[in-house]
Nucleic acid binder design. Structure first.
Length: 873
RNA sequence: GCCGAUGUGGCGAAAUGGCAGACGCAACGGACUUAAAAUCCGUUUUCACGAAAGUGGAGUGCCGGUUCGAGUCCGGCCAUCGGCACCA
């Protein structure tokens, strides 16, 4: 196939302007104090979720959000803001390491190569990033401060009285290690044998690893944890002031999972003496002895009002009291059940959820409200990790308990009267308490309150709030991540001094997981040894660590003395007359709704409490772009062969067409399929813009069109011009880029056949189009400047145009006239016509008279400037 | 199962409660051309009647409601997509 003739020379002008922007530092953003900084200007911080630079390169999904933010950034800059619009690399992570294992090539090498590739691809699209602010999470100058933030977490705690993070020095208790925000715990973790690492709850999907889809099992291991649960309430409450999609706020709230209820202590009825051999064999023998005396079992319930309906109790199989309470007779069965559940992966546990299983322990608990003996069972439908790991079962009013009770033939006692018309057994909603001496006749909400109060007065429990959110499992058994700035000495951990940072990972030839759960860093014997007595921590941080604070580093990326300079932080992330503070616009995919966005908010709050940052929330306005599907309407994937490569599109249609098509496809937030003919349509539009200003001479060269003249636009042209300024400006503010482009198409259609193309109108169009198609508009701007003096050297330095409402109104307006809601005619009236005048004109129109024949006019609704509706019967 | 989003021409879509389908794609017709491409102009929700200009009916997933007026608001369903999933 021969080379298709280009509709306009984008292949020449795009590289040209990209080179100019780079050499002129056109999009460099000065920091406070720097040359070119004007303190009077308001700030605008517009941020993209930085990419993981994978080997596959950029796909068309990346530039969707990036183009949206680029348009906003260029627009705001022209509106007179200092705009912070940076880009960087989330470059630690599993794929680079797995590639290293396969090829033996160091992850640093492949990462550098991938970053270079990504960067070249992004530059080809013409984004107005300030590349002098580029950050890379694998850069020692960067992860030094990731490690430094870890030190702040380690050296602080959450003071429940102030509800804030404070330095550990303010803690008055005896065991600071038990309250640090970064702590070590022996905890059941998500262990993935295939990846050779543990994973956060958030990284496990349906019992499989998010990366690679390998099976994950639970096993107890010693791990670093971050105490995010301390911030659970604030992470919910402080969502309120944020301009985020409601759906995302809800997703976070549900993930944090707050529920109000009560803790209730149940006594244990006459426990049998625990056999001596079980005590001897058990590490927790202390507990076994205590049980006989005063140990209680505490349950959490959201329905304390149903306490009289509790007919049995269930412990999680792993509950610490199981060994202590189980009778000799039931012990073999209980032990077998525990072993079976322990072997089950999370996946199996969910798959088998259809059928409830469980075993009776032989023991009984005493219900504090009525001194009733109820049997204690264990069952894997009760989870150790939530609440207290034990429940009181109220089968009459809880679906799961009901199912379990039916299967094992346990008693069911109704204690809530359902509203009329509903079956009370199995009813789980709010009703009236019955069969409950203390509570009879009360509404559910009253009964809950009364029971909670009663429990507290009598020492049987208290009102409690529970969260689904777990502490953040923060260590990984990986090579390609930030090492912990921690050493171990005689079984105790302590941190490195700030002066010892950054702690870089050791050189290793073999990155393979050990398979035992011991991290690969343990293989670096020299590195491992810190002193004669102390060895280094060998875990590394998860990939989320670097992305938790990168938006802070952009504000002051070269600062060697501080993670971000105070003045820079205050300017870019503080509030001013126009900004509520924080990142003013953050665009990225929904896949980060609960992971990155929750972690980053958590870190930010800690830094805020410790007075390192100005505002408690990092991202003021969040927008999620929708995913782009292949031309077949399916998710893009290599195996389907429907992947669109940005490089190919740019080679054929140019970067401006690529950018504009991505924005013209449909609403930013929506999922939408790619269409190559759609790209062609947008490319045609840009070519029409080009030909408004340029024409081809005899020699086949593009020269300024003779139709462009310094002439006054006519009335109709002024109307469409000002309508376009108005619509494009408003649409950029609301990120409705598709309709902004439609309006510019209308403009171009209106001018295409004009004999004279007025210079002022052409210039205004170029300004409006510049954020969308920066190369084309720069080139045309330059051509116009060469013939007509009086413009700035780069269109990027020009100001955004403003519109004049008076051009938008016509003297005569056309008003539709409806009869009984159906359009029957249109009449033309003066724009200032009164309601009575409009009504008179409408009623005298011939078609309307015809339609009203034989009817009585009941009412005439006149909406001035809009329409007339005549109601007639 | 629970929570959320979405449902409009052949397709992507547009419409502060006020003319449904702007803008673009595709298709068809025309102009230019020896011809094609490119470009420019026009038609294009659907049904009925009409040679035509046109006239009339239906129409925004389904059923109902509020309103002079509903794609838009309210109630109830259905479908698709996404998230959570024994959270007591």
């Amino acid at each position: 196939m021969s080379e298709r003739r280009k509709p306009y020379p984008f292949d020449r002008i795009e590289p040209k302007w990209q080179a100019v922007w780079e050499s002129e530092r056109t999009f460099h953003t000065p920091n406070p104090g720097e040359a070119g900084f004007d303190a009077a200007k308001p700030k605008y911080y517009v941020l993209d979720m930085f990419p993981y630079p994978s080997g596959a390169g950029l796909h068309v999904g990346h530039p969707e959000g990036y183009t949206a933010t680029d348009i906003v950034a260029r627009y705001r800059r022209m509106c007179g803001y200092h705009v912070l619009h940076p880009m960087g690399w989330d470059a630690f992570g599993l794929p680079a390491e797995q590639y290293a294992i396969k090829t033996g090539q160091h992850p640093a090498i492949t990462t550098a190569r991938n970053v270079a590739h990504f960067k070249a691809q992004l530059k080809r699209i013409g984004f107005a990033y300030d590349w002098e602010r580029e950050v890379n999470t694998t850069d020692p100058g960067y992860f030094k401060w990731t490690q430094w933030i870890f030190l702040q977490l380690y050296h602080s705690w959450f003071n429940p009285e102030t509800q804030r993070a404070e330095m550990i020095a303010t803690y008055r208790g005896s065991d600071p290690d038990s309250v640090r925000l970064a702590y070590v715990a022996e905890a059941p973790v998500n262990w993935c044998p295939e990846l050779g690492t543990v994973l956060a709850n958030e990284e496990v999907i349906d019992g499989k690893s998010e990366v690679g889809g390998h099976p994950v099992e639970r096993r107890p291991m010693r791990q670093w944890m971050l105490r995010i649960t301390a911030f659970a309430q604030r992470l919910i409450d402080e969502l309120d002031g944020l301009d985020w999609p409601d759906g995302i706020k809800l997703l976070q709230k549900n993930w944090i999972g707050r529920s109000e209820g009560a803790e209730v202590h149940f006594g244990i009825a006459h426990p049998e003496p625990v056999p001596e051999e079980r005590i001897a064999a058990n590490a927790m023998s202390g507990i076994l002895h205590r049980v006989r005396a005063e140990e209680k079992i505490t349950v959490f319930t959201t329905r304390p009002d149903t306490l009289f309906g509790a007919t049995y109790m269930v412990l999680a199989p792993e509950h610490r009291l199981v060994e202590a309470i189980t009778t000799e007779e039931q012990w073999p069965e209980v032990r077998a059940y525990r072993e079976r559940t322990a072997r089950k992966s999370d996946l199996e546990r969910t798959e088998l959820a259809k059928e409830k299983t469980g075993v009776f322990t032989g023991a009984f608990a005493i219900n504090p409200v009525n001194r009733e003996r109820i049997p204690i069972w264990i069952a894997d439908y009760v989870l150790l990790g939530y609440g207290t790991g034990a429940i009181m079962a109220v089968p009459a009013h809880d679906e799961r308990d009901f199912e379990f009770a039916k299967k094992f033939d346990l008693p069911i006692r109704q204690v809530v009267q359902a509203p009329q018309g509903q079956e009370s057994i199995g009813f789980c909603g709010d009703g009236i308490a019955i069969n409950s001496p203390l509570l009879d006749g009360l509404q559910t909400f009253e009964a809950k309150a009364k029971m909670s109060a009663w429990l507290e007065e009598n020492g049987f429990g208290k009102k409690t709030i529970n969260f689904k959110l777990r502490d953040w499992l923060f260590s990984r058994q990986r090579y390609w991540g930030e090492p912990f700035p921690v050493v171990w000495e005689s079984g105790k951990h302590r941190t490195l001094d700030e002066s010892e940072l950054p702690l870089t990972p050791p050189e290793l030839a073999d990155f393979k997981p050990t398979g035992t759960g011991e991290p690969p860093l343990a293989k670096a014997k020299d590195w491992l040894r810190y002193s004669d007595a102390a060895t280094r921590e060998t875990n590394t941080m998860p990939q989320w660590a670097g992305s938790c604070w990168y938006y802070l580093r952009y504000c002051d990326p070269g600062n060697a003395a501080r993670f971000v300079g105070e003045e820079s932080e205050r300017y870019w992330l503080g509030a001013d007359s126009e900004s509520k503070g924080g990142v003013d616009l953050y665009v990225g995919g929904t896949e980060h709704a609960v992971l990155h966005l929750l972690y980053a908010r958590f870190w930010h709050k800690v830094l805020f409490d410790l007075r390192f940052v100005s505002k408690p929330e990092p991202f003021q306005r969040l927008v999620n772009q929708g995913i782009i599907l292949g031309e077949d309407g399916q998710k893009m994937s290599k195996s389907r062969g429907n992947v669109v490569n940005p490089d190919d599109v740019i080679a054929e249609y140019g970067a401006d067409a690529f950018r504009c098509y991505e924005m013209f496809m449909g609403p930013l937030e929506q999922m939408k399929p790619w269409s190559m003919t759609g790209v062609e349509g947008v490319s045609r539009f840009l070519a029409r813009v080009w030909r408004l200003v340029m024409s081809e001479n005899q020699a086949g060269e593009w020269v300024l069109s003779g139709a462009v003249q310094d002439a006054q636009p006519d009335r109709a042209q002024l109307k469409v011009l000002h309508a376009t300024i108005k619509k494009v400006s408003a649409d950029i503010e609301t990120l409705s880029f598709n309709t902004a482009i439609s309006q510019m198409m209308i403009f171009v259609n209106a001018f295409t056949n004009a004999a004279v193309k007025p210079l002022s109108a052409m210039r205004t169009l170029l300004l409006l189009l510049n954020p969308f198609a920066p190369h084309l508009t720069e080139e045309l701007w330059e051509t116009l400047r060469a013939h007509f003096p009086g413009a700035k050297e780069s269109i990027a330095h020009e100001s955004w145009p403003s519109f004049d409402e008076s051009y938008l109104v016509e003297d005569e307006i056309e008003v539709p006239v409806q009869v009984n809601g159906k359009l029957r005619d249109k009449v033309t009236v003066n724009k200032d016509a009164s309601v009575a005048e409009i009504e008179a004109v409408a009623l005298s129109a011939q078609k309307i008279i015809d339609h009203l024949a034989g009817k009585n006019v009941k009412k005439v609704v006149v909406v001035p400037g809009k329409l007339v509706n005549i109601v007639a019967t």
